[in-house]
Design a protein around this nucleic acid. Sequence first.
DNA 1: CGCACGATTTGCT
DNA 2: GCAAATCGTGCGA
Length: 207
Amino acid sequence: MRPLFDRPAQEVAPLLLGAVLTRVSEEGTVALRITEVEAYSGEGSDPGSHAHRGRTPRNSVMFGPSGHLYTYFTYGMHVCANVVCLPEGRAAGILLRAGEIVQGEDLARIRRGDAVPKRDLARGPARLAVALGIPLSDGGADLLAPPYSLELDPHPPLAAMSARTGVSGPGGSDAYPWRFFLDGDPTVSPYRASAPRKRAGGAEPPR
DNA sequence: CGCACGATTTGCT
DNA sequence: GCAAATCGTGCGA
């Protein structure tokens, strides 16, 4: 299964739909069925990718072996989880955006909050990381070895696709239709058009 | 060394 | 519907 991830993220992404990702911790086990992902190439001109401007300390994991976990911290409070693609030396990743909890719902609810509706437990990238209990320090972990396991769906469901949500700026969201999701699944996050990039102190109004 | 901003979520209006 | 929360990263000086 490993070589599967040595391919471009946009090819691997739809195959992850329906797959079950499990994480075991001292607290217990939580497993989720992946329902929504986004691919980031990091090569060529993909302005949305963290690897777009080359290798940095933060994104170095993306340049490592495929099938590993790339985590990043954003907005001063959120952790997001990605699957690294392409062989060592080349960077690409798949952002896990949403999933349906299929095991350990009680533990997921403890982490996310009592009043959280079942469908919202892992609906959104940061929520997904919280539900599974993925800490920032898990970056670089092998997703095919404990405490993780990843089981692909032998009959991958039909994937719908659209522009990516979080990518803003020219050539950003519209450039690649690399958001893949299970159409009609209630755990898929509502599509939000990317916020227009703010023009700092802008003498120049955006057109 | 300083500053602007983000692969988001949440809560209030 | 809109803005705040909150801080590491990356770029410019």
